[in-house]
């Protein structure tokens, strides 16, 4: 055995290297659900990741609760006040909704606010390193989560699912340099593509590229997903413009986008399935 290895060492290593490259080339760039091998590894590893993150959260919360009880009572009072205010507002808005429905039916406009079927999920592991921003969540095909579904958090888009195993899924945030989201500015309707960039990733920012050179986009504009994507549904908010620069070619502009969601400190997310559009009542 050892002798065989010594004799054919170079050949064996060469063959393995070529095999890996071939697999990479054939499997590259496909958004498929996990293969058997991946599922097995996921089945072994994800429960422990879940556990470790759980323990971490528990320690965090216990430490916090012991530390600032007074702050919590204050916060509670504040929240109660806020709640009362919001309830009041909600009642008012409900009336608006009713009025809106009545008026729309008068005008025969079928107005649809997109409301998708959603599943709550948690992040259980993150990609180490500074280059990419992918993470693992604790829902998989068992919970009808599958590839190319969208992840959102209160405020806006977080990313999409790359691959789903039985009990876990691999997701990519919009800060990842491999991610690209067709987007537009709400105010002016200028189109562009929101891309991640590793130089901005660690500040939690991303970049909107390919904006027309004469576009009227300005700092503070809200950016939402455009209808040009077949993965992201239109109209989900992404973030706001913090800076606009002209590209070196002078023909296009790019904007630095600050996402509404704090993508550096995410915990709980929603997975939405864009194929199950539920009409708003």
């Amino acid at each position: 055995m050892i002798q065989f290895w010594e004799e054919h060492k170079k050949k064996i290593i060469g063959v393995i290297a070529i095999a890996i490259v071939a697999v990479a080339l054939f499997a590259g760039g496909k958004n498929l659900n996990a293969s058997a091998l991946e599922s097995v590894l996921g089945f072994v590893v994800t429960p422990f990741q879940d556990l470790t993150t759980g323990i971490e959260n528990w320690v965090d919360s216990t430490a916090a609760s012991a530390k600032d009880k007074t702050a919590l009572t204050e916060e509670n009072a504040q929240l109660k006040a806020d709640l009362a205010k919001l309830q009041d507002e909600n009642k008012r808005l409900e009336q608006y909704a009713k009025e809106n429905a009545a008026l729309s039916s008068l005008l025969k406009i079928s107005q649809k606010y997109p409301e998708y079927k959603s599943t709550g999920t948690k992040i259980i592991a993150k990609n180490p390193g500074v280059w990419y921003n992918t993470f693992t969540i604790n829902k998989g095909t068992d919970d009808t989560v599958s590839a190319n579904m969208i992840l959102i958090a209160p405020g806006g888009v977080v990313g999409k699912i790359l691959e789903s195993g039985k009990t876990y899924s691999k997701a990519q945030s919009i800060l990842d340099s491999r991610s690209a989201v067709p987007a537009m500015s709400v105010r002016t309707g200028d189109l562009g593509v929101v891309k991640g960039d590793y130089t901005l990733m660690n500040d939690g920012l991303c970049k909107m590229e390919y904006i027309d050179g004469e576009a009227q986009i300005a700092v503070g504009d809200e950016i939402v997903t455009s209808q040009l994507s077949d993965v992201y549904p239109a109209g989900l908010s992404i973030g706001k413009v913090t800076k606009i620069e002209t590209d070196t070619n002078g023909l296009t502009k790019y904007a630095i986008i600050e996402p509404f969601v704090d993508l550096k400190h995410l915990d709980t997310l929603l997975v939405i399935d864009k194929n199950t559009l539920e009409e708003a009542p």
Binding site: V23, A24, G28, G29, E38, Y132, T134
Partner: peptide
């Protein structure tokens, strides 16, 4: 590769 890669084999290699 399984958990964080987009293409199989990059990190392995």
């Amino acid at each position: 590769d399984v958990f964080f890669g987009t293409a199989m084999g990059y990190y392995t290699l």
